[in-house]
Computed example of a mutant assay.
Amino acid sequence: MRLAELSERSGLPTATIKYYLREQLLPPGVLVSAKQAEYGEEHLRRLRLVRALIQIGRMPIATAREVLTAIDDESLDQNDRLGMAVGALPPGPAQPDQDDRATAAARREADLLLDSLGWTNCEDASSGPYRALVTALAALAALGYPHDLDHLVPYAQQATRLAAHDLDMVQEYESPSEQIEAAVALTVLYEPILLSLRRLAHSRESTLRHGTRATGPSTA
């Protein structure tokens, strides 16, 4: 397909597509003349992913490029490609203070939690999710809210089931590259759904427990 058709099918203006090409977020098409290129379904799929990262996930161009580079690195096995691509996504909360005593205590608690779950391969102090976990635990401790194993393990158990469901969805795609792209897109797009469903569930549970409708939309 030519650029105009790619624009029509993707729903993105040609100027935006050209910008993504310049920023190396979209691989170049196959030249059919000095000024025209041909694009395929892989370009359409990549545009949808870029749109999810930048327009919906609010990801900076440089970060999106890092994620896409990991997706395209065929020198890695599938597990490493998936880990690098998802690991390049923004971690969320602010990063922990390496010199803070509360952070050191939170790191010990995080390691204890992961060890108790058998997630010993997750204790990479440089990974975004691990650092975000440490930051959150330190904040809970500082404010006096529960952050012991009894309170945390149920969340981890639910996360395990969700991870299995996520990978089941990813494996519905045929090629390894499509699977990696889907894993990244679903991570970005499903996290708001998880947050929304959790808050809606809170509203529903409050209604059931207290007999009056909690603040927020009814889920009845």
Rank of each mutant, 00 (worst) to 15 (best):
V50T: 12
S218N: 15
L53D: 09
S7L: 03
V67L: 05
L152R: 09
R81Y: 06
A37V: 00
E172R: 09
V184Y: 03
R45I: 00
L6M: 01
P13Q: 10
S177D: 13
S126Y: 02
L76T: 12
G11L: 12
L167G: 10
I17T: 11
L25S: 01
R101N: 15
L3T: 14
Q78N: 04
R107T: 10
L31Q: 01
A104M: 14
R45G: 07
D77I: 02
L6N: 04
P154Y: 11
N79K: 11
D77K: 08
Q98C: 00
D99H: 05
A138Q: 07
I56T: 14
T103H: 15
H202R: 14
G92V: 10
L53T: 00
L194Q: 04
Q78C: 05
L53I: 06
V50A: 02
D124H: 07
I180W: 04
D124W: 00
N79A: 15
R2A: 13
E66T: 15
A88G: 01
Y130S: 07
G40W: 00
R9Q: 05
A85D: 01
V30A: 13
Y155S: 08
D73C: 06
S218K: 12
L140T: 12
V170R: 06
L117N: 01
A64C: 08
R213W: 07
D148K: 07
L21F: 04
N79I: 09
D99N: 14
L31M: 12
W119T: 02
A88W: 08
R131V: 09
L44S: 08
P93N: 13
T16H: 12
T187L: 06
Q179C: 05
P96C: 13
M1R: 10
R9I: 05
Q157Y: 04
G118K: 14
E178H: 07
Q95W: 14
L6R: 10
A94D: 15
Q78A: 15
W119D: 08
A64Y: 02
L12E: 08
A85K: 05
P91E: 02
M169R: 12
V188F: 08
A214H: 06
E66V: 06
M59N: 13
I180Y: 03
P93R: 11
Q157H: 08
L112S: 14
L114F: 07
R209I: 04
V50C: 04
I56E: 15
K18Q: 12
S10E: 12
Y20H: 01
A70R: 01
I54D: 06
S203D: 13
A136Q: 00
L26M: 03
R45Y: 09
P90H: 10
D77Y: 13
